[in-house]
Simulated scan of single mutants.
Amino acid sequence: MTLLPTLKPALALACMTVPAAAPAHFLLEYTVDTMIERPGDVPVKLVFWHPFENGHVMDLARPREFFMLHRGERTDLLDTLEPVTFTGPTNGGAAYKGSVPVKRAGDYVLVTVPEPYFEETEDIYIQQITKSFLNRGTMPTDWMTPVGLPVEIVPLNKPYNILTGSTFTGQVLADGKPVAGAEIEIEYMAAEPDMDSSSASAPVTTPPPGGAVVAISDLNGYFTFGVPRAGYWGFAALGAGPETEHEGKELSQDAVIWIRAWDLD
């Protein structure tokens, strides 16, 4: 069991959720489910979007890397990607559909390393290195193991079957070392991609007042969030990566992780 460190009072207050001003950008690796019953190719959509408020869709360039880890073995999935247009309520944007070959029991860790995206309104580049998780056969194998990315969030709870009302804890790592004081935006996938139409479903809720929900990592890079609702939750550690510049402009190299929460019957 990993024990979280005792925080100084000021830092402990910083780890509580606080509002941020702007809506959150999130790269989605979306699958309809996280727990796979039968072997086969699982469809996945890569979309750069604002899913909490069902907002603007950003154009996603073809990723630099798209792969999976299963039982410690890496499989390149770039050749499975096909360009599509994903349509939100106000616009459409370039996205991708692909597939994940799920065969043996165990975890399948999906990883996307995108090209940096230029956000004109902020005059910066954004690169969201993203992880999500599938499992077959309820056999845990890989979910808790760092991938070795420039920046990533390592889960301390099994990320594909979090219970609603429980907590999720992650650790922010850059070049394998904990990142203290990282700002983590927290996003609920209130609207989900429709796999057939490549459009947004109707949102099931709206964001709370005050803007994006934010947590701050502690001295050892840990943060904890109480999960209030079933569904997909995303966490983005903003600017936590080692690269800070791209093509002469500021780069926010973010670590993103998606988890799935479930209600008890």
Rank of each mutant, 00 (worst) to 15 (best):
L78K: 02
H70F: 02
P242Y: 01
T206R: 11
V172W: 05
L134F: 07
P83S: 04
T169H: 05
V100P: 00
D265R: 08
Q171P: 00
A191K: 08
F133E: 04
T34P: 00
N161D: 15
K249V: 00
L163Y: 12
I186P: 09
M189V: 08
A94I: 08
G165I: 02
V111E: 12
V147R: 00
A202G: 06
P242G: 01
Y96D: 07
M195D: 08
Y30G: 11
L3F: 09
P208A: 14
P207Q: 09
M68G: 05
I162R: 00
S217N: 04
G241N: 06
S166L: 10
E185K: 15
L46T: 05
A12N: 13
D33H: 03
P228I: 04
A200C: 08
G92W: 08
G239K: 02
L28A: 15
I162F: 03
E245I: 03
L251K: 00
M35H: 11
G248A: 05
M58R: 15
S166E: 11
V109N: 11
D254M: 03
W233C: 07
P39T: 02
W49I: 10
E73H: 13
T75V: 14
N161W: 14
G234N: 06
S132E: 04
R62F: 14
N135T: 10
D107M: 01
E152R: 08
V213A: 14
N54E: 12
T145Y: 03
S199D: 11
M139Q: 12
Q253L: 03
T145W: 10
S199F: 04
V113F: 11
E29M: 10
D142M: 02
Y108K: 12
P89G: 11
F168Y: 12
D123G: 13
E115H: 14
I124A: 10
E185D: 15
W262N: 07
G226I: 07
M144S: 15
A21L: 11
V113N: 10
G165V: 07
A261W: 08
Y222P: 07
E122P: 02
P150F: 00
G92N: 01
V147A: 02
E187L: 15
I124H: 09
E247R: 10
F86W: 13
E53K: 15
G98Y: 10
L77I: 02
P209K: 07
D175Y: 06
P116Y: 05
S132P: 04
S198P: 00
P203D: 04
E247G: 01
V227N: 03
K45M: 13
P207T: 08
M58P: 02
D254F: 02
L27E: 06
G88L: 11
F133T: 04
P5K: 04
E29P: 01
Y160H: 05
R71K: 14
E53L: 10
Q128H: 11
T85Q: 12
G72I: 03
T90K: 14
A215T: 14
R104C: 01
M1S: 08
F52T: 15
V32S: 13
L110P: 06
P19L: 05
V151N: 07
L163S: 14
K158N: 00
V109L: 08
E247S: 06
L110H: 10
D142K: 05
G106C: 11
P114E: 08
G226M: 13
I129Y: 05
P193R: 09
Y30R: 06
M1G: 09
P155C: 05
L251E: 05
T145I: 15
T17Y: 01
F223A: 03
M16P: 00
F118G: 04
T87M: 11
F86V: 08
